[in-house]
Nucleic acid binder design. Structure first.
Lengths: 357, 357
DNA sequence: AATCAGTTTCAAACCGCTTTGGACAAGTCA
DNA sequence: TGACTTGTCCAAAGCGGTTTGAAACTGATT
C-alpha cells in the first residue's frame, strides 16, 4: 500500500522516523542522517530515503526535534497591552508580516505573547526558562528601557526594533533614522517659507518620538528659530488626537502654517481638522506625515496624498528578524546595529507658506 | 547556597526536574505529580515540593512536556499574504490581541504563520504533521472556503472567525450577524427618508461582505426599493478606495444621499470625498460605517463621529479562542456556533434626508 | 595474509518530562 | 491472623527525534 495511512475518520496519520526506517530496512540513525544532509551516508541510500520520506508523507515531529536538539526553533514577539489605554500598535501587523516571512523561509516558528504591560518582565523570564524560544524581538523601546538589561541578564538573544536613548549597554538594534527624517522634513518646510511649524508627535517616552522631536528642534535651531511649546503636541497617535490637536492649534491667535505629524493615522485627523475649517491641505496649511507604508493605509494610489518621510515597517520586520536569526546562529559575535534612512517623498499636502496679509 | 545557579556569564540556569527531585530526596515521579496536582501525593510533601520549586526557580521545560504529553499546547493562526495586493488585514492586530489574552490565561502559546495565500494548504498540513499546534483559527473565510473541508480531513481542530456561505459540512464558527447589522443600518437610513443609499463594500468573495450586501438589499426590497448597481461598490477596504468610490458616486446625475460603508478606514475616505465637495457629513450626506472597535482607530472620543454598526473584534478574538480551546479539550463534542449581534450606535454622521429641491 | 584507512551503517544513550505498573507501609475488615 | 484497602512513593518505560561510539565492510597498502 502506498501513501499515508487513512484512519476511519479520514485523518492522515503521519508516520514517524522508526516506522519509516523499518519500512526501508535501515536504522533510524541512518534515516535521520540521510534526511538532514549528513555526509556519512551513501548517496544512493540517501536518495532512497528521501524518496520514501516524500512518498509516505513523513515530516519529523517538531516536538521531538526540539527536545533532542535543545533548540526551540522559534522566535518570540511580546505584545504588551497597555493596561491604561489598551492600544495595540497598528504597525505591529505589518512588522510581524515582514518578520514572519523571514521566519518561514528559515524554518522558524513565530510565537506571539500578549501580555499586560505590567507583567512584561515575567513573560520574558517565563519564555526563557520554559525554553519556548531561542530569541526575541523587542518592540517599541522607551527611553532607558529596562527590558534591555533584563534580556541580557537572562541570556536570551534579542534584537530591538528601535533604540533606547540612555541605555549604555551594547545591544543589537535596527532603527529608522527618525531624527534625520524629521530634520529633513522640517528643513523642507522651512525652505518652503514656513516658520510656524507644529509637531504632532507620538508619546514622548517612546524613543522614536524623542528622536523625531530632536530632529525637528535641531532643524529649527539651525535657522535660529526656537520651537514654540504651543506648537508641540504629544499623545497617542490616533485620528481623534490628531484632529483635536490640530483644531486647537489652528484656533491660536498665531496659528501654524504647517504640521509635522508622526503617523498616517494622526495625519488623517489633522487633515480633517484643516478641512473642517474650510482650509486646504497643501494651500493654506502644509502637512508632512511619517508613512510606515502600512499595507492597509497606503498613502494614495499612484500620487501620494501626503508629503511624507517614508520607511517600510514591513521591510524593517524582515530585516530585524534576519538579524535575530543571525544572532542566534552566531552567539559569539557582538551586537549588530542597523540604521535605515527614511525617504522624503513629495505629495500634494505641502506647498509654499501663504503670504502674510 | 540558595537560588538558581549563576554562570560566569551571569545567565540564570534553570534546573530541571531530576535535579530538583534529588535536591528534595524524592523521585522525579513524585515531584512531577506534586506540581501537577495529582492526588496520590502527601499534602505535606506537596508543600515541600512547591516551596522548593519556587525557591529554585524551577519551571518545567516546555519542549519536554510537549513531547511527553503529545500535546503542543499551542494554537496556530495563519496569516495569508495575498500575493497580488499584499494587504495585511488591519483587524488582525486587535483580533489577535483578544485571542492572545485567552491563550495566556490558559497556558497556551500562539503560533503565527505568515504564508503566501497560494501556499496556505501546505501550511496547514505542515503545522499538523509536525505536531506544532493543537488547533487553529481560520481567518477571513470566503464563499465555499476550501480550508474548511481541508482541516476536517487532516483532523486539525479549528474554529472559523466568520462563516462560509455554501459550505454544507458542519464546522465551528463565531461570527457577527453582518446581514442583520447592515439590514438595520439600511432601515435606519430609510427611516430618515433616504432612498438613494450607496453601499461601499469590501471584496465580495469574502463571506462577511456577501452577508452585508444581502442585509442591505433585503432592507431595500422590504420597502419595495431595488438596489441600484451604480450605488454598489466592492473593493479592498482602504481609505483611497473609499474616497474614489464616493467621489464617483457623488458626481452621478442622481447621487446618493447616504453611504453604508464596510469599515472605518473606507469611511474616512468617504468622509474626505464628501468634505472635498464642500458637503457635510450628517447634513447633505449621511454615512454609516461598520466599526470593529480597533484600538487605534476609535470612532471618536466620547461622542461617536460616525453612526455605526459596532462589534468589538477584540472581544471576538477572545471568544473565538475560548471556543477553540474548548474544542481541543472536548474533541468528542460536535461543532459549536456563535452569532454576535452588532450594536447600532448613533453618531453625528447621519441625519434626515435633504428635501428635494 | 595482515594492517590500515575510509566509507557506511547501526545500537544505544540522551533530551526532560509524563505515566504505567508496581512496591511498601499502615490501616480495615472478616 | 490473614486478606484487602488505602495512601504514598518509586523504577522504568515511554514520547520521537539526534548524536555518540563502535562495528562491519570495502579496497588499498605493506
Amino acid at each position: 500500500m502506498i501513501g499515508p495511512i487513512e484512519t476511519v475518520l479520514g485523518q492522515i496519520l503521519s508516520m514517524n522516523l522508526k516506522e519509516l526506517a523499518s519500512k526501508l530496512g535501515l536504522s533510524p540513525t541512518t534515516v535521520s542522517r540521510a534526511l538532514n544532509g549528513y555526509p556519512e551516508v551513501n548517496e544512493s541510500t540517501r536518495e532512497r530515503v528521501v524518496a520514501a520520506a516524500k512518498r509516505y508523507n513523513y515530516s519529523p515531529n517538531t516536538r521531538a526535534i526540539r527536545l533532542a536538539t535543545g533548540r526551540a526553533m522559534a522566535v518570540g514577539h511580546v505584545i504588551p497591552i497597555a493596561t491604561r489605554h489598551e492600544i495595540v500598535n497598528p504597525v505591529f501587523a505589518d512588522f510581524i508580516a515582514g518578520a514572519g516571512e523571514t521566519y518561514s523561509r528559515n524554518g522558524y516558528d513565530m510565537l506571539l505573547s500578549v501580555v499586560s504591560d505590567d507583567d512584561e518582565e515575567g513573560a520574558y523570564r517565563d519564555l526563557k526558562s520554559r525554553g519556548a524560544i531561542d530569541g526575541i524581538i523587542v518592540h517599541g523601546p522607551n527611553q532607558n528601557d529596562p527590558r534591555i538589561p533584563l534580556l541580557r541578564d537572562i541570556g536570551l538573544p534579542f534584537v530591538v526594533h528601535g533604540r533606547s536613548t540612555g541605555t549604555t549597554l551594547p545591544y543589537s538594534w535596527l532603527d529608522v533614522n527618525n531624527r534625520r527624517a524629521f530634520q529633513r522634513a522640517t528643513e523642507f518646510l522651512l525652505d518652503l517659507g514656513h516658520t510656524r511649524i507644529a509637531l504632532i508627535n507620538g508619546l514622548e517616552f517612546m524613543d522614536f518620538a524623542i528622536r523625531r522631536r530632536t530632529g525637528y528642534v535641531d532643524a529649527l535651531a539651525a535657522r535660529k528659530l526656537a520651537a514654540d511649546p504651543a506648537l508641540m503636541f504629544s499623545d497617542e497617535m490616533t485620528e481623534v488626537a490628531g484632529y483635536q490637536a490640530a483644531r486647537a492649534m489652528l484656533a491660536l491667535p498665531h496659528p501654524p502654517t504647517a504640521f509635522l505629524v508622526s503617523s498616517m493615522i494622526s495625519g488623517m485627523g489633522v487633515r480633517r481638522a484643516i478641512e473642517s475649517l474650510n482650509l486646504h491641505m497643501g494651500r493654506e496649511v502644509s502637512v508632512i506625515i511619517h508613512d510606515d507604508e502600512l499595507s492597509y493605509l497606503r498613502n494614495g494610489a499612484e500620487v501620494p496624498i501626503f508629503t511624507a518621510t517614508r520607511s517600510s515597517v514591513r521591510e524593517a520586520g524582515r530585516l530585524t528578524a534576519e538579524m535575530l536569526l543571525d544572532l542566534i546562529a552566531n552567539p559569539g559575535e557582538g551586537p549588530k546595529e542597523r540604521l535605515l534612512e527614511a525617504d522624503l517623498i513629495i505629495g500634494q499636502s505641502t506647498g509654499p507658506a501663504p503670504r502674510k496679509n
